[in-house]
Each structure stands twice: as C-alpha cells, then as structure tokens.
C-alpha cells in the first residue's frame, strides 16, 4: 500500500472582521471543514475561483497561517496547525510553497545564490561551502546555469524566476510542495516548460504536490486527484478521470462549461451559430 504524505481532517478557518463605529464585527468563514488525503509522489489539484478559500488552505497546509479548527497529519505524524508558533525546523523541512507571482516572491535586493542558500542557513547547520554546493546543484536541476548564482531577480524573465522560486522551495528537500497558481502568471510556452520541470522533479525526487489552480486544462494535465472548492466548501473531490468524465456538482459543471475549448469541432459549431445570427439580423 502506498504511503500517505498528507491527510487533512475537517479544517476550518474563520476571519474576524473587526467592526467600526457603524458596522458590526462579523466572522468570515473562509474554509469550512475541508478533508483530503494525498499519497506519496501524487498530485492533488485544488480548483476554484478567487475568494473560494484555496489560498487560505494552502497557507494552512504550509504552516504559514493557523487554522481555526481541524487536524493535519504529515507523513503519519500529527501536526499542530492551530498554533503556528510551534512550527519546528523539522516541519519546515517537510513542506514548502511556491507562490503565484515570481516577481513578488523573490527579494529584488538579494542575489539568486543568497535566496537559495538562506533556507539552509536558517534551518540547518551546514557550512557555507556546503550550502553553496547544494545551491549550485539545485540551479542545475531546475535548468539554470552556474553563472546565474550571482545575479539579481530583475535580470531574469518570469519563467526563469519561477524556476528559481521552485529551486528555493526544494533546497530543504521537502517531501511536500504546495504550488499556489505557479503557472498562471506565465506565457503559454513558458507555462509548458515549468509544468514539464515540475513533472521531472516529481519523478526524480518523489515529491508530493498540492497544486492550486483555476485553469482546468492545466489541472487535467498535471493532477492525479482533483478537489473543487466553492465558497470555502469542497463541492467535488475524486480521481481526475472521474471528475473530468463525470462532474457531479453543478458548480463543477459550470466551471467546465466556462472553460474555453480549442478543438476544431467546437470552433466550427460556434461559427455556424454566428452565421445563423448574422442571417437573422440581416432579415430584420
């Protein structure tokens, strides 16, 4: 039986919006009791529109923000997610995150090499020479060159920066990587390169991914399991083949219907409809 890397049970997160002179304080339920399980070297995709709580969930799994209630098991061990001041270096080495915008997630005044070695400096007691060697190795692994080590983020394109951000997240050799919309800010061709890189790294290092996206065509390509969220709730959860072949919830169906289709049959049908419309307008 395969090994479960991440198991979440009934995670919730409430935000308290403080009231003012006129407005009363209110509670926003951003995540409402979410449960899921990811096995080693598999990818769980979380899909939903902005404001559905998917990024909040990502921050809880990555132990950045605390949850209001719920349980989380990582590599079979229970993790305290209700108090984020209890995160140990050992836990930090287990889970890492890659953010959506590689322009915002790298410090503009920090050289690539320093960005890569900093996690090691903070969480391990490796020597400077060791840290440098590991960073060089990781640069090569994500398809960058040794001379990039001493450069600054502004000297790179969006795709290259996302490679650096991925390299940095892997410096501590985590078993779990949370990817929060890692390709939505990238051009189509660069998106393909980064998706290939992620697939290569997963094969090579046995990584487990939680992949957050709103793009169903990307999800279909990369995911093993798919979880659809809507207003903080999971409305659909299952293996990719099942979800794509037989979506059960109305919101999932709506998402599929809204996703643009690029097959020739679909375009032909659209053009026929359009011609009909034009003809009827000409008659009026």
């Amino acid at each position: 039986m395969s090994e479960t890397v991440l198991e979440a049970h009934a995670i919730t997160r409430d935000y308290h919006v403080s009231g003012g002179f006129i407005r009363a304080a209110k509670v926003v339920h951003a995540v409402k009791g979410v449960s899921f399980k990811v096995e080693k070297a598999k990818t769980l995709a979380i899909v939903g529109e902005s404001g559905c709580g998917k990024s909040t969930l990502a921050r809880i799994i990555t132990l950045i923000d605390p949850a209001t209630s719920g349980e989380l098991m990582m590599n079979g061990r229970e993790v305290d997610i209700l108090h984020n001041n209890r995160v140990t270096p050992a836990l930090r080495r287990t889970v890492q995150i890659v953010f959506q915008n590689p322009y915002g997630s790298l410090n503009p005044r920090q050289k690539i090499g320093d960005a890569l070695t900093e996690p090691l400096l903070l969480n391990t007691d490796k020597s400077a020479a060791e840290r440098r060697d590991l960073a060089m190795e990781m640069l090569a692994k994500v398809g960058m060159l040794p001379e990039h080590y001493h450069r600054y983020p502004h000297m790179f394109s969006g795709g290259q920066r996302q490679r650096v951000a991925i390299a940095r997240s892997l410096m501590l050799r985590p078993s779990l990587l949370v990817l929060d919309e890692p390709v939505s800010a990238l051009d189509l061709s660069v998106q393909a390169q980064v998706l290939n890189l992620l697939a290569d790294l997963q094969d090579e290092l046995g990584l487990t991914y939680v992949f957050i996206s709103h793009d169903l065509s990307v999800v279909r390509y990369i995911a093993d399991d798919v979880m659809v969220m809507y207003f903080g709730e999971v409305v659909e959860y299952g293996p990719r083949e099942r979800v794509f072949a037989d979506p059960r919830h109305d919101y999932t169906k709506k998402l599929f219907a809204a996703t643009p289709k690029t097959d020739v049959e679909h375009i032909r049908a659209r053009l026929v409809e359009r011609q009909k419309w034009r003809d009827s307008r000409a008659k009026r």
């Binding site: 061709s189 393909a192 290939n196 793009d215 390509y221 990369i222 690029t262 020739v264 375009i267």
Partner: peptide
C-alpha cells in the same frame, strides 16, 4: 489556424496547450 497551422511558431504554440498533450511531457516553444 486551429485545424492546419502553417507557421512553425503557431504549431509550437498550439502543441504547448495542456489539453493537446499527447505524451508524458508537453512540447514547448523552446
């Protein structure tokens, strides 16, 4: 354009679409 792209770049762009993925990895514009 979608049925029979003439230009090499257009073909590369279309084959980089995840929904057109045939193999294990996506072809890239590179």
């Amino acid at each position: 354009l979608f049925a029979a792209p003439q230009n090499a770049y257009t073909r590369a762009l279309l084959s980089a679409l995840p929904e057109n993925a045939t193999g294990d990895r996506l072809p890239t514009v590179a």
